[in-house]
Structures are given as C-alpha cells and as structure tokens.
Nucleic acid binder design. Structure first.
Length: 281
DNA sequence: CTCCTGTCCTGCCGGC
DNA sequence: TGCCGGCAGGACAGGA
C-alpha cells in the first residue's frame, strides 16, 4: 500500500502526537514482522521523549531527545492510527505495536501482512545505514529534476517502469505512482530506462513530483486498507488516470473517442503495470 | 555490477 | 454456500 504520499500523510498525522511528547510505554504485541522488532525496542523508547519525525522515501524516522531513533516502514499493508486520550482502546487484530503517550493518546501500528519494519538506530547514524546509504533523491526535494533523474538512469537497460520502482533511482515511488507518472509524462513503461531523452527525463521528473504532491494533498490513496491516522480514507484513488483502470478509456489522449478501451494491464517483473499505449510512446 | 525470480504474510475477490 | 487460485501498495536474498 503505502508509497511516499501515504507515508507522508501518516507522518503528518503522528507528528503532533509524537513531537515534544514523552512516550510512557511501548507495547510490542508481535515482534515477528518481516524484520523482527529487537527485544530492546520497548525499553529504549519507553520513558523517552520524541524530538522530531522525518520521512525518507517510504520510511519514517522518529528521533528521540537522547539521540536514539527508530525507523518505521509500513510495508504493504501497514497503517498507523491515533486513539485519543479520552477514548477507550481495545487492541484489534494485527495491532502489533502500541505507543502509549504520557499525555494519554495512543499511536497504534496495525499491519495484517507483517511486511512492515521497525528497528532502532541513532540520529547520527541512520542516514548512513542500509537502505538509506544508497537511496536515490527525494522527489519532492529542491534538487530533484530532469538531469538528476537522467543521471540515475544512464546505462540502465531495465524498463523505465521497473527502474522507477528501484529506490536507488528515486526514493518513495511505488507501483501506483510509477504508473501514474509515466502516463502523465506520456512515456511507455516498456521503454529502456537509459534510452530516455533529456526532454523526456524532464517531463518524467516533473510528472513524478506533480503526482506525488497531488496525492499528498488528497491524503494519499486508499485502495483496500490504507487510512489516514484519524481513520479517514485518502481519496487520490479517485484521481487515478490509469492505475487499476484496465479496460477503461483514458481522458485527454488520442484514443479518447475510440470504441476500444485504451488502458491496458501488463505484467512487468511480476507486478501489474497500467498504461495507455496510444498516449505513452 | 545489473537484472530477474522467488519469498515473506494475510485478506479479499472472482470463478467454479 | 464453500473452496481454491490469483492477486495486492514493498523489499530483499540469491542466482544467472
């Protein structure tokens, strides 16, 4: 589920509950996620005060006042929800980790498929560790543009769709937004990544940024299970141009008036790609 | 190196 | 109604 917009939506939801507040207790109900939560997780974070929250790609980083930090990835099916101080709370199925704040509210991590991750790091070292040390640029950052993207694609013979899913090329793009950005940039997902022209790389970088920004503004996309931290659904799924729209007619392209629906679904490296072969060349 | 396949886990949906 | 296969937003290991 969660790609950059959903993770950023989640981070914005938990930030006011976390930042500047003390965690009274961390309850780990299940430690056997995709990567096991370490035994010391609760002890290090309980009775510790949160200094700040951050996002890098699809990861959230929560920094503590004493220099510790923890890394949080929502996997495919994870989400965070906030239960207010006055509300009762009974753990539901797949509620794996509960942060009980000193002031009363709880932040709950629910993840049916358990592909999510939570692990410990430090404020000084997390950026140089595993996924982050080789991670590509932030697509919403000032430094992301066509030339930067083109440089990351140089020499790559994989198709551009799969290249966009590679977090070393650009951070935070997943299956939905890769499809949507390629559609907006009118680039065929089967094209070799290294063969894009400078102009196409410009268009693609702009499309990635635009799609992600609009998705964040819409509170993310809710396909099956994603919800914002207050339980509201995101609504960017209503704005998809091609994703999950196989057999429909896309808007604003040369095929618009045809009887034959233009949006196709193909499989690339085992994952669905949706695109319009008329618009995307 | 690069690239592709299989795997982790649960839930849901469509077909029979 | 019930069972079964296929599929799902991600990331990583291992092999070619």
């Amino acid at each position: 589920m969660p790609e950059l917009p959903e993770v950023e939506t989640t981070r914005r939801g938990i930030d006011p509950v976390f930042t500047g507040q003390r965690i009274a207790q961390v309850i780990v109900r299940r430690h056997d996620l995709r990567v096991a939560i370490p035994p010391s997780f609760s002890a290090i974070l309980s009775n510790n005060t949160v200094q700040s929250t951050h996002r890098r790609g699809k990861y959230m980083i929560v920094c503590m006042r004493d220099g510790a930090a923890f890394i949080w990835h929502l996997g495919m099916s994870g989400r965070a929800s906030i239960h207010g101080a006055g509300q009762g709370y009974t753990p539901e199925k797949h509620d794996h980790v509960i942060f009980e704040m000193e002031t009363g509210p709880r932040i709950v991590f629910n993840d049916p498929r358990r592909f999510g991750m939570m692990y410990l790091s430090t404020q000084d070292s997390w950026q140089t560790e595993k996924p982050f040390s080789a991670m590509g640029p932030e697509p919403l950052g000032n430094g992301f543009n066509g030339p930067v993207l083109a440089a990351r694609l140089t020499g790559k013979r994989v198709n551009i769709k799969n290249a966009l899913l590679d977090q070393r090329v650009v951070a935070g793009v997943g299956n939905i937004y890769a499809c949507e950005a390629l559609y907006e940039a009118a680039i065929n997902p089967l094209r070799a990544a290294g063969d894009l022209s400078a102009a196409e790389a410009d268009n693609l970088a702009a499309a990635i940024r635009g799609v992600l920004e609009r998705a964040i503004a819409a509170g993310g996309s809710s396909l099956k299970d994603f919800k914002q931290t207050d339980g509201q659904l995101g609504y960017f799924q209503h704005s998809f141009s091609v994703y999950d729209r196989e057999g429909q007619v896309c808007s604003g392209c040369a095929c618009g008036g045809r009887e034959e629906p233009c949006i196709k679904r193909i499989v690339q490296s085992g994952r669905s790609t949706f695109y319009c072969p008329v618009k995307q060349r």
